[in-house]
Design a protein around this nucleic acid. Structure first.
Lengths: 183, 183
DNA sequence: GTCTATAATTTGATAGAC
DNA sequence: GTCTATCAAATTATAGAC
């Protein structure tokens, strides 16, 4: 992945997170990056290529930023709280939805490879969360707790975004605290 | 609202729920309904008009189908279970996302009146849920419980849709049962 | 790698006949 | 209300020069 390609993916990420897969064009990306649309096609021949690449780029970046749940736990912190903080930061700092939450909502009309990349976001996040809950002692319900956590956070972003009020996000995630009492 | 306008809104609803606001055109709607695109413009002059109308149509239909939470409770049923069933039916029978969940995810790039109509979906759903939790005895946390419920259901639809596996929806909504123990 | 130029199609929208 | 006809702009994508 060259620097230019990374810059293109960053521009695409911002636009998908604001309005979805069909809300931007190759010209929009090109203008933002400071090149021409034909040059964007050189790096990503079709929009499907670009869509799948940005979903994978976002997922890699997101999972990488989380770090290892066991390491977080070993250092005395709660990995679930770290995970929640990652979503909250994405909502506040980037002022945007979760990229794969948006693509997931539009999934029925997306090209196959974009759907596949979007699905991988959820697979890898649920894997991460399951390991986090396991090291917190949830030996029986770790998979279910993981699914519940990612679902609630995706929904909290949407509710909060639709209401344009971060307090709806914070009110939503309070529900996650109830998972702990189930250990 | 004439029959023709209702038919147009139903076609638009299906398309938004499949792929979002920018995934369909006036021609798509016209073909589906069996008329020409100019005729669609006669009923809904701009796409913003159509978008706002379909969000309001969907919300009215959804809230109306729920009925009154007090009546449900009086008849011996749990209104929250009725609410969950409404979302599950929307996911299975229509094979689509929540229309306002999709629009909420795309909100940053939608026309003002479409965002406003989308926000009303969440306002009215939270109101309904708050009344439901109140009649179940949640006198202190009814608003928070309402927000948590709609967020989790919206997120459960996205996760389930992205994974194309309804079991992710069912695993997600198990978390709502924990709200009861908080009464 | 990036550009100019352009093809082929689609899009939201309007004018005016019936 | 619906149609034909049309428009101007935008869209994805390609060919070929530099």
């Amino acid at each position: 992945m060259t620097k230019r390609e990374t810059t293109i993916l960053q521009a695409a990420e911002a636009m998908v997170r604001q309005g979805g897969y069909n809300s931007f064009s190759f010209r929009d990306i090109a203008t933002e990056v400071g090149i021409k649309s034909a040059s964007v096609h050189y790096h990503f021949p079709t929009k499907e290529d670009l869509g799948a690449a940005v979903a994978q780029y976002y997922t890699d970046k997101f999972i990488d930023a989380l770090g290892d749940p066991n390491d977080i736990h070993s250092s005395g912190k709660n990995p679930i709280e770290s995970y929640i903080a990652a979503f909250r930061a994405a909502l506040i700092e980037d002022k945007g939805m979760c990229l794969c939450g948006v693509l997931g909502a539009e999934a029925d009309a997306l090209p196959e490879s974009v759907i596949a990349a979007t699905r991988m976001f959820f697979v890898r996040n649920i894997e991460w969360l399951e390991r986090a809950y396991l090291c917190l002692g949830h030996t029986e319900n770790s998979k279910a707790a993981a699914i519940q956590t990612v679902s609630l956070l995706e929904g909290a972003m949407i509710t909060s975004g639709a209401m344009t009020d971060i307090s709806y996000f914070d009110a939503s995630i309070e529900l996650l605290k109830l998972i702990d009492i189930r250990v």
